[in-house]
Structures are given as C-alpha cells and as structure tokens.
Design a binder for these strands. Structure first.
Lengths: 173, 173
DNA sequence: TTACTCATGTAACAAGTTACATGATTTA
DNA sequence: TAAATCATGTAACTTGTTACATGAGTAA
C-alpha cells in the first residue's frame, strides 16, 4: 500500500469521524454495527486498532474528556486527516472499481443449474431483492432528509440486480 | 463461520475448478489474475493455502499427473465439493447483500465538498465510468458467446452508478 | 441492586497481500 | 542458451473476525 493511502475501512472510519465532527471510538463502532450495509461488522478488534494506527499517523486527534470516569476519548480529524480523507474519496480509480459483489460472484454458477433448479433459485432471489428494495424505500420514506447518497446507491444497485434477474428469467421462457 | 460453509474466495475457487473441469492451482491463479474484476489478486499465498484447506475438507480431489517433471497436480471437484459449491451459490441472503462497494462508500464524502470541487470530481468520475462501460461493451462485442452473467452484471452495475451520478449532477445545476 | 448501555481494549485466530524461492519446460 | 512461462510453495506482514475482559454510569 503506498505511503499515506488509506484502506477502505480506514477511509470509512475517517469519514464517520468527519461526519459527526467529534465522537468516541465507541460511537464509530456503533455506526458500523447499526449500518444497514454489512460490509464491516464494526468489531472492537477492528475499530480500536484502526483508530490507534490513524492516531499514530497523525490523521486523528484524540483528546481525553476531563471529569469523565469512563476514560472517554473524543476523536476529531486533524488537518492531515482531512487531506487524507479527501484524497481517499477522490481516488477515481478505486471508486469505479467493482469491489466485492457476492451477487455477481455467484451468478456464473447459477447458469450451470438444471432449468428447474435455476428457476426455483431465481424466484427466491427475485423475492429477496424485492424485499430489500422495499426496505430501502421504506427507510427513504421514513427519513427523507437524512437519506444520503449511500441509500440511493444501495437502491440503484439492488434495482439493477433485479432488472438483470428479470431479463435473465425472461430468457428461460 | 458455520461448518461446511465457504468464504467468497473459496466459493470462487471451487467455481473456477468446476467451470474448467480439471485444472491446476496455477490455472486457478491465472484466471483470478487475468480477470477484469480486481476483487482478488490471485496471489499464490491466497490460492495455494485455500486449495490445501479445501482438499483437506474433501471438497477438492487432487491427482498428481504422472510423467510430469513439474509436479503438476490436477484438481477436480469431489461430490461433496459440488454440493458445497451449489449451497454457496444458492445462499440467497449472502447473494443479495451489498458486498464492498468503493463507489458507495466514498459517495457520502463527495457531498461535503465545495460545489466547485464536487463538480470537478463528478466530471472525472463520469469519464471513468463511461470508459469502463465502453471497455465492457467492447469485451461483450469481441466475444459474444463467452460473455457470461458476470460481464452483464458488471455492465449493469456501472450503468446504475453512471445513471445515479448524472441525476446527482443534474441536481447541482 | 440488577441489568443494561457506554467505553476501551486484548488474545487467538483466519485469511489475504507482497515478496521470495525453487525447479521444469518451452520458445526466441 | 537465455528468457519467458508453467508450476508449486513458504515467510513475514497486515488486518479483519469472534470472544473475552474490565470498569463506569444509568435506569428498572
């Protein structure tokens, strides 16, 4: 990894600290844990070491909260941290990469199934995708202000899968 | 990880061995290395240990090629291996999960940029996406028979990103 | 006072990366 | 014969996972 660059996870951590202005490592964990997307579990064993690394690199400023028996530490982005976050977010090559897509990875295997098995599986996939889309639409309707681009892109990606799936099922008939 | 289940990478390895019928670990490596998607590097340090694990679990049958000074080993799927691969491919919950999407992960950070910086970045992203789409369309035109669902889904995903991006840029005007 | 949440962290393990090492075979 | 490719593998490192451990504050 080139010097100064950030992993996906580190970028997401800095992004979260930048978003909330000043927060504790615990709050960063919770935001990953409660996030709809299951990209990272937000486990303590991932978050605390990552924050320690980023603090050692001078990208995060950690300030002990005084008069707090819990030993709470407030985290903020330093100026280099903001710069590193901007550079990470502006990495076009990585942004347009395909990432890890479990739907696509499995798709070529579906072609090898017998027509009957394939039809059954594609029906299940259709239902699951439609369910996810309904959830995302409900979340969007619940909090129309707070729904950012991630939710929109989640929806767009799931709709693209469903459109592919229905075109694929049409071919089987 | 529940017993008998496969990681994304292990599933992809079994899928590749199933696809080519019987091949060497080296051929599995090459197919990852030369794959358009950069999900996995196909490094020897990933492929050989994974194949050893899968062989120890009885999912891969390894047969030494006789009369080959290179010590070549032919790999095939065992019956339990084919069953494990089918179960992995039919895991609907994991299939419809979002995976790791570097475009979506970065998108919320783009909203924090100044209008001028955002416009410049979104222009670069537009060009990069259009370029990727053109490459995929060219690959599809070059080999119309051999282009499987992965290529179609790659295209669908990139087109969905581009459509989101252009709608997003329209809002800024 | 019991249980839950806030808050931080470590230990053992899993699994990927790069870089290195070795040797056979094929091709220029 | 020199270089490229085929073929297999290991070692050091990174970084994620689960599970565990600890302790302070808060609400039933």
């Amino acid at each position: 990894m080139p010097q100064g660059s950030l992993t996906e996870f580190e970028g997401a951590v800095l992004s979260e600290i930048g978003r909330c202005g000043a927060c504790t490592a615990y709050q960063v964990r919770r935001s990953f844990e409660t996030s709809r997307s299951r990209e990272w579990s937000g486990s303590a064993g991932a978050v605390y070491p990552a924050i320690r690394r980023l603090t050692e690199r001078g990208l995060i400023a950690a300030a002990k909260a005084r008069g707090d028996g819990r030993g709470t530490t407030q985290l903020t982005l330093s100026a280099p941290g903001r710069a590193a976050l901007r550079a990470w977010a502006a990495d076009v090559e990585r942004a347009v990469g395909p990432g890890v897509d479990p739907f696509r990875t499995r798709s070529s295997e579906w072609e090898t199934l017998s027509p009957a098995r394939r039809a059954a599986l594609l029906t299940k996939l259709d239902r699951a995708l439609a369910g996810r889309i309904a959830e995302l639409e409900a979340a969007q309707a619940d909090a129309p202000e707070s729904c950012g681009p991630r939710l929109e892109l989640d929806l767009a990606a799931q709709r693209a899968r469903l459109a592919w799936l229905r075109a694929r099922r049409g071919q089987d008939r």
